[in-house]
Design a protein around this nucleic acid. Structure first.
Ligand code: ZN
Ligand code: ZN
Ligand code: ZN
Ligand code: ZN
Lengths: 140, 140
DNA sequence: AGCACATATGATACCGAGTATCAATAATGC
DNA sequence: GCATTATTGATACTCGGTATCATATGTGCT
């Protein structure tokens, strides 16, 4: 999956630098969603001398390529989720942070109806589902 | 609508102070979504000596009462929308900021299906629709 | 392999949203 | 009216994210 990111970066015409490779590897090892600070801490612990700015810059790049998506958790914090570059939504565990993709979002019907009633032309939508993953359900 | 807010604050058992009344009135005069900074600027322009913290504190109170909802705009900024304290979603104009409520969100079916497939127990969802309002569509 | 050039890096400083603190002030209940 | 207690606003702070810029490093060309 780090491979995938590096490929995408290559295709995007940016350089495959050391820090980017290292960070991609770190992202790969992550489970569930993570924050920029999490990544930075990962890098710090391993004494890779990676700068704050570099982390944010890479996250933005990956986000442009759709390989990472930024979500807003219910508590207001921003987190990132590695994912496929196609339209889909996320199911996020409120307890452990695990995420799953929901690809067939049947909300096209919902948006169509909302558009009809309001007169708006709907251009994008954002749907996020929060709950408890199977593990956390049984663990409790 | 400022009335409504003040009533709710009263019911919530907090004091109906001068700053809160003034801010409620300012919120009433706003159209579309607004940021904490917008409100603060409104207050500043009118030389009400209202402190930064007070604005954030009131927005949080109103948010707890469901009279204002915080949304995350696609550009990453946080904005507030005055609204009814019932479950519903927002349709936001990307051009002028106008908002409408979408109350019958037919996504219960979507969440049920996602829950079935994933094994998650879904506890909350967030749906935001973005587009162009009728005015902005015809104006262009 | 070596070079030239443009891009990327990290240190630092900076910005803006939001929060903690706390002495001074004002709303409420009696 | 007065005592009590919540609220206020000034100030200082935290934290996510960005601008700047001299230095380092990938990349394409030879
Ligand atoms: Zn979980
Ligand atoms: Zn969708
Ligand atoms: Zn809903
Ligand atoms: Zn509009």
């Amino acid at each position: 999956m780090a491979e995938e990111m590096l490929d995408a970066l290559d295709r995007a015409g940016v350089r495959l630098t050391g820090p980017r490779r290292k960070l991609a590897a770190l992202i790969e090892r992550r489970e569930g969603h993570f924050t920029a600070a999490d990544l930075l801490k990962d890098a710090g612990r391993r004494r890779m001398g990676i700068g704050r700015a570099t982390v944010f810059r890479l996250l933005e790049l990956l986000s442009e390529q759709g390989l990472v998506e930024r979500i807003d958790l219910p508590d207001g914090t921003h987190a990132y989720i590695p994912c496929e570059p196609t339209h889909h939504h996320h199911l996020v565990c409120l307890n452990c942070g695990a995420t799953t993709d929901v690809d067939d979002c049947g909300i096209e019907a919902v948006t169509r109806e909302a558009a009809r009633r309001s007169g708006f032309k709907i251009e994008q939508h954002r749907l996020e589902l929060f709950g408890r993953c199977p593990d956390c359900r049984s663990a409790n």
